[in-house]
C-alpha cells in the first residue's frame, strides 16, 4: 500500500496489529490478551527456563527426524507415482485421502501403537507432512514437459540418468513447494501431537500455562512456536527462490 507516495511494506501492518494488541491488553478488555509488552518480557523468562529448553530440544529433535523421514519417503513416493502408472492408480486415492483427512484423529491410535513418548511425536510429524510432499512431487513429475524426456532419451540417457538428471531437477520447484507445505504441516503435527499426548515437551508446557491461566507465558510460548514455524517455512522458501528462474520459465 502507498500513502502520500510512500510505499509501506506489507509486513508493517503486523506492527500496527501489535500496537492494537498492546492497547487492547492495556485496557484489559479481554482476559485472553495481556499487553504484548508483558508477553515479550515474559519471553526471556520462558526461554531461560530449563523446562522450556528441554521441551524445545525434544520438539526440534522430533520435528527434524519426522520431517527428514517424510521428505525421504514423500519424494520417493511422489517420483514413483509420477513415473509408474500402476503405482499411481494404487496409491493415488490414499494419498489424496490422507492429504486432506483430519489426521489428528489418528493421534490416539499412534499413541497406543508407539507409546506416549518421542516416537509418537515423530510419527505424527511424519504423517502430517508426508502426503503433501508426495502429492506435490508427483505433480512436478507429471507436469514436466515431455519433450525434455524425449530429449534425454534421444541422447541415450539410461533410466537412472533420466531420473536423476532430468526428472528430479524438472520436478524440483514442485518438490520444494511440497516440502515447504510439509514443514508447515509438520510444525502443526508436532504441536498437535504434543498437545494430545500432553505429558511431554511443549504440550506439557501449554497445558500447564493454560490450566493455571498464565496468559503471558502462554502467549510467549505461542509466539516462539509461531516464529519457529514461519522461520522454517521461510528457509525453504529461500531455497525455492534460488531455483525460481527456471520454475518461472517452465510455467510461462
Amino acid at each position: 500500500m502507498t500513502i502520500a507516495g510512500y510505499r509501506i511494506p506489507p509486513l508493517a501492518s503486523l506492527i500496527l496489529w501489535a500496537i492494537v494488541w498492546e492497547i487492547v491488553g492495556r485496557l484489559g478488555l479481554v482476559f485472553l490478551f495481556p499487553p504484548l509488552s508483558h508477553v515479550v518480557m515474559e519471553l526471556g523468562q520462558v526461554v531461560g527456563s530449563t523446562t522450556f529448553l528441554n521441551a524445545a530440544i525434544m520438539t526440534v529433535k522430533c520435528f527434524v527426524i519426522g520431517i527428514a523421514l517424510s521428505i525421504a519417503v514423500g519424494v520417493l513416493l511422489g517420483l514413483l507415482m509420477g513415473r509408474v502408472d500402476a503405482a499411481d492408480k494404487l496409491l493415488g486415492m490414499w494419498v489424496n485421502l490422507f492429504v486432506s483427512a483430519p489426521l489428528s484423529a489418528l493421534v490416539p491410535v499412534i499413541m497406543i501403537l508407539f507409546g506416549m513418548g518421542e516416537s509418537t511425536i515423530i510419527v505424527t510429524v511424519f504423517l502430517f507432512a508426508v502426503w503433501i510432499i508426495a502429492l506435490d512431487t508427483r505433480a512436478g513429475v507429471r507436469d514436466m514437459p515431455p519433450s525434455l524426456l524425449a530429449m534425454a532419451k534421444s541422447f541415450g540417457a539410461s533410466r537412472w540418468q533420466v531420473l536423476t538428471k532430468i526428472v528430479f531437477f524438472a520436478a524440483l520447484p514442485e518438490i520444494l513447494a511440497g516440502i515447504r507445505l510439509g514443514v508447515i504441516r509438520g510444525v502443526k503435527g508436532v504441536v498437535i501431537g504434543q498437545l494430545l499426548v500432553s505429558i511431554i515437551g511443549l504440550g506439557e508446557l501449554f497445558e500447564v500455562y493454560s490450566r493455571n491461566f498464565l496468559m503471558e507465558e502462554f502467549w510467549a510460548l505461542t509466539l516462539i512456536v509461531f516464529a519457529f514455524a514461519l522461520g522454517a517455512a521461510e528457509l525453504i522458501a529461500m531455497l525455492e527462490r534460488k531455483i525460481d528462474f527456471y520454475a518461472g520459465v517452465r510455467h510461462a
Partner: peptide, 14 residues
Amino acid sequence: AAPMAALIPLITYV
C-alpha cells in the same frame, strides 16, 4: 503457517 491448534487449550479455558 502457524500451528493455530496451540490456541485450542486457551480457548477452552476462556
